[in-house]
Write a protein that binds this DNA or RNA. Structure first.
Lengths: 202, 202
DNA sequence: CAAGTGACGTGTTCCATATAACGTCACTCA
DNA sequence: TGAGTGACGTTATATGGAACACGTCACTTG
C-alpha cells in the first residue's frame, strides 16, 4: 500500500511533496486548476504520472493543499490584524477591509487561482469550511476583547453577535458576489464594517 | 414597423400580449426560461412564431416582463410589511424575513422560475437593478420613520445607514448564496436583522 | 389595411464519438 | 527493498456536424 506511515501518504521523502506542490502552484496559477493535468505536474518535475500518486491520493488532494495555502495567506493577514494590539473596533474594521482586498487580489491578480477557490466551494472541499471556522474564531476573539475593554456592549449573547458579524461579512467574502460587486467592494466593506461596529458598540 | 404607437410594441390589441404572457408564465414555470422556445409559446396560443414578434421585441423582453412580475410579487409582500403600521424595528425585521422566505419559495416551490431570476442577474437585465432600487426606497422609508419616532439613532447619515442595511441584506437575497445556505436561511435572516437593528437603535 | 404566416439567414445548442485525463497495478532495476 | 514506471480500465472532456432556435421580411388573405 502506502510506502510509509508518516501521516501523509508517501515516503519520508518530504522533498518530493514540496516539489510537486511547487509545480502545482505554478501551473494552477498560470493555467488554472481544471486545465492543468497531473501529467503536466509530473512532466514539470521530470517524473512519471504514476509517481505523483505515491504522494497524493488524487489531483483534488493537491488542489486542496494549494487552496489551503491560498487561504492561509489571507488568514495570515487576518491574524496580523487580530494581533495588532489596536482597539477591537479598529481591528474588526480592518478584518472587513482585509478580506475585501485579499478577495479582489485573488480575483484579479491571480485570476486563475480564483477558479480553485470556486472549485473548493462547488465541490464542497473542506478547505472552505475550515476557513470559515477559523475566521469565526478570530472574529470571536476580537469581539470578546472588545467586550472586556468595555468598547463593545455585552447584552447580546456572544455567539449570536459573532455569527451575525460573520454573516455580514459574506457580501465581502463570497467569490460569486465579488464578481458582481468588485467595483465597489472596498467601499462596501467599509460600509458594512461601520454598520457592524454600530451594532456592537457599548 | 410597429403596428401602433401605444408605447409598447404591438397593436391596441392588448389582449394578445396578455395571452402571450400567460403562456410564458406557464411554460417558464414548467420548463424554465431557457428550455421554452418562442415557438412553444406560439403553439400554446395557436399562432405563428413570427406573430409573437409583433408584440415583443425579443424572447428576452418576454422574460423580463415575467421576471418583473416575479419581483413584483415579492415587492408586494415587502410593501405590505412597510405599510403595516408596526414599529419601524419590527418592520425592518420583517423585511429580512420576508425576503428570505420569498427567496426560498422561489427557489424551491418554483424552481424553474428561479432560473429566470438567475438569467436576469447574469445577463444584466434591468429588472434586477430596478428591484434593488425599489428595495432601497422601502428600507429608507422605514429607517426614516424609525428616526422620526425616536426608535432609531440619528447620528449616522441616513444614506450610509440605508446602504449598509441593503448590503447586509445580500446574504439573504442573492440567489447564488441561497443555494449554499438555504438550510439556515430564515435563521440567518433573523440573526442579520438582529445585528442591523442593534446598529440602528437609538 | 390589419391580422397573420412561411420560409430563410445566422447564431446556439445537442449529441455521438474520439480523445485525453484520472487513478491503479503489476512490474523493473539499482 | 524502495524509488520509479508503462500500460491499462474507467471516467471525463473536447470536437464537429446536424438539428434547432431566434428574429426578419416579403408575402397572403379577408
Amino acid at each position: 500500500m502506502r510506502p510509509a506511515g508518516n501521516g501523509q501518504r508517501g515516503p519520508v521523502d518530504h522533498e518530493r511533496r514540496e516539489q510537486i506542490l511547487g509545480a502545482a502552484n505554478e501551473h494552477f496559477r498560470h493555467y488554472g486548476y481544471k486545465k492543468t493535468t497531473v501529467a503536466d505536474l509530473a512532466k514539470a518535475i521530470g517524473l512519471s504520472t504514476a509517481y505523483i500518486y505515491k504522494f497524493f491520493d488524487s489531483k483534488r488532494a493537491i488542489g486542496e493543499e494549494i487552496c489551503r495555502q491560498c487561504h492561509d495567506r489571507v488568514m495570515t493577514d487576518i491574524e496580523g490584524v487580530v494581533r495588532s494590539g489596536k482597539p477591537a473596533s479598529e481591528r474588526l474594521r480592518l478584518i472587513f477591509l482585509t478580506l475585501a482586498r485579499d478577495g479582489i487580489d485573488l480575483l484579479f491578480n491571480d485570476r486563475k487561482m480564483h477558479d480553485i477557490v470556486l472549485a473548493a466551494l462547488e465541490e464542497g472541499w473542506s478547505t472552505a469550511t475550515d476557513f470559515d471556522a477559523e475566521l469565526l474564531l478570530h472574529v470571536r476573539s476580537v469581539i470578546a476583547d472588545g467586550r472586556e475593554t468595555g468598547e463593545f456592549e455585552r447584552k447580546t449573547p456572544l455567539e449570536e453577535a459573532c455569527r451575525g458579524v460573520v454573516l455580514a461579512l459574506q457580501p465581502v467574502r463570497h467569490p460569486v458576489l465579488l464578481e458582481f460587486n468588485h467595483n465597489t467592494l472596498v467601499e462596501d466593506a467599509s460600509l458594512l464594517a461601520g454598520l457592524v461596529l454600530r451594532s456592537l458598540s457599548a
